[in-house]
Amino acid sequence: MALLELKEISKIYGFGDATTIALDEVDLSVDKGEFVAVMGPSGSGKSSLMNMIGLLDRPTHGTYQLGGRSVARLRPNQRAKVRRDRVGFVFQSFNLLPKITALENVALPLMYKGVGTTRRLKHASAILGQVGLADKEYFFPKQLSGGQMQRVAIARALVNNPDIIIAGEPTGNLDSESSRLVMELLGEIHALGHTILLVTHNPELTRYVTRVVYMHDGQIVYDEQTAIGEVPKLARRASLLLQRRTAEDDYAGVSALMGIDNEKPKKTKRTKRRTARRKPVRAHKQARKIKR
């Protein structure tokens, strides 16, 4: 019995000509202990699938079984409870609450479960220790580095001992060194027997996973098992083949879907070009102003 089983899951937004099919009868089953990467260009339905699996959203059609329980038609409050007990989220922009300490952030899901203060802080402290941040318990998020914040977020996702951890572009806001640390941490967590769903456009990250799923236009177009440590050829190729837009548009699209701050893209040739292109527009506008 698979840990999660999606059958003919569809998500349709809008009406008439404005109809968007975000997910088009997707079938997916994930077993306990798998580390699945979901790849695909922006708009391919990665995020919709992630929201669906994480029970942030409700499918238009289809059935979804999580741990043997049918969860596709749950009401918002019931979904919240399933999220609380069975799902852990890791976001690109960390999404820690800024006004509480790292420890309290980690303990937050337990609070909603009704665990007493002392017990939940104790538990959260143990988990923080596991991700290597035992000495940062009383730091506020803004006092931590990006990598540290993401590790706090991972601890928060872990604190409920969830059935599945959903990581949406977890390294998107990190430098390569922090990215490596975060991915290694996810790898370790996977090694401990956790099931992880990684949504990414970065083929390099697939070296940590056991299975890669490619999405395109709301459908799963390819599904492949891989060995840890290798980047499947298709992942490389797919990222080229399926790429209709540039990597950066992709990045922006994923970010937008994930609700993520992408204001500071790293300086690439692309950004340089963009600023270069902008200048004449400004000059043009100024010229018009002067005319008036």
Partner: peptide, 16 residues
């Protein structure tokens, strides 16, 4: 709003 989103994602019910 963002905070509400985070709290909801980690399992806060509407009532909470």
């Amino acid at each position: 709003t963002r905070e509400i989103g985070i709290r909801k994602a980690i399992g806060a019910t509407n009532r909470q």
